[in-house]
Amino acid sequence: MNDLWDGLREAIRLLLGGDREVWEIVLLSLRVSLTATGISLLLGVPIGAALALVRFRGRALVVGLVHTGMGLPPVSVGVLVSLLLWRNGPLGALRLLYTPTAMTIAQAAIATPIVAGLTLAAVQGLDPRLRLQLVSLGASPAQTVWWLLREARLPLIAAVVAGFGAVISEVGAAIMVGGNIKGETRVLTTATVLEVGRGNFTTAVALSVVLLLLAYSVTLALTLLQQRRRPGS
């Protein structure tokens, strides 16, 4: 229990005391995970919307893939991205392995199926007649999709929360493609693993607390955004 209390105190000290290294780690975690979430939105929302709105051959197959992808273990993604980015791998010439960009790519790969799957569910959860109503009001296909997504924005924000939560908290892919390099690719989760390995449990607890606070504040911000729009009833 002492470790916990010490950890809490240490977390507060690290944050308020403006520990430069911790702040670097926090900012990098945010940068990587938010960017990955952003990319997963750009990819996952159109995929999910298309799967919800377009009937085509093999759709069930693709939906199954997306749903499987929602539970993709981060380490598996890490292995795949590593294989791609190794110097002598297909994308090795880009020299991306052990950079924040590699971590962003891996995390985007983790979050995209989550966002796509939840977007699919969100759009399918809408009254099917809304789509006909939009079309009958003269909306083009693009306008229809855009307005349907707007109608589904509450569950879509939940999708963003889920995607962000998945990547900010994952460690397997981050450590594999990032390498946990101090000052470059060390994020909250990999730093926590390192500190546990070093036996610095107080610091590990502190970093975990910071991670929790971070995840909580981003999630809270999104949730506030979500709830604010709910009509009073």
């Binding site: 940068r31 960017t35 707007r150 924000i157 729009r229 009073g232």
Partner: peptide, 28 residues
């Protein structure tokens, strides 16, 4: 209670998120 329909919608949020992400990429 007169409720005003909030003006920023999902599009705004998305765009804001993109800008935020882009600004984070800038140092890289």
């Amino acid at each position: 209670i007169t409720r005003r329909a909030p003006t920023p919608h999902a599009g705004f949020v998305l765009v804001a998120a993109m800008i935020w992400a882009a600004s984070l990429l800038a140092p890289v």
